[in-house]
Amino acid sequence: MAGRKLQKSFTGEGLVCRRGERLVFQGVAFALAPGGALLLGGPNGSGKTSLLRLMAGLAPPEQGAIAWDGAAIAEDPAAHRARLHYIGHQEAVKLALTAEENLAFWTQMRGASDAIETALRRVRLDARATWPARYLSAGERKRLGLARLLASAAALWLLDEPTTSLDAESTEVLLTAIAEHRHAGGCVAIATHAPLPLPSAQHLSLTGHTTWRQA
């Protein structure tokens, strides 16, 4: 597989995204090599979340193609889902379950289960593992969501505003986790307004010039 190494592993070309009548962006392209990081910038409503959703396969692009190792992700959605972590701006935390139960659930859904304690310790929630999530603060719920990244492995991380409501120490934990993930050959795409110090990251700025379809 030596030849594969040179190939870009996660690519998108000529992407057009339409939400309803609104053309969110067009002509967007990206290419991420193993270990690569992509920072999505741009004003509110410029389509950062929409692009992450296209990358995750939650919605098909109006035009253009997204491919993993040269194979379109739409060809085998199940394989694509198995290789990605998508953390949206909602934490997907159930308030009636404890922190540990929440994390264990998402990890079991991905077919893993042993790294839960380690993941909780790394996001500094181990002392609150048995608390119902409704007693956690906004930042702690965010950390619980991010713990999913650490509890099971996936080659591609798609993070939507991961640093919102995180304190400095937790942001540092996240940056370390991203660095380890990239070192192991993983890719990461992050939509963010905060300037994240990621070494040799690519920047993709969405201009926010959206247009309405003429009736």
Partner: peptide, 14 residues
């Protein structure tokens, strides 16, 4: 409402 459905639809389980 809480984003779980979106996350569930991205799980490897069909």
């Amino acid at each position: 409402q809480d984003g779980s459905l979106e996350a569930l639809s991205l799980m490897p389980v069909p």
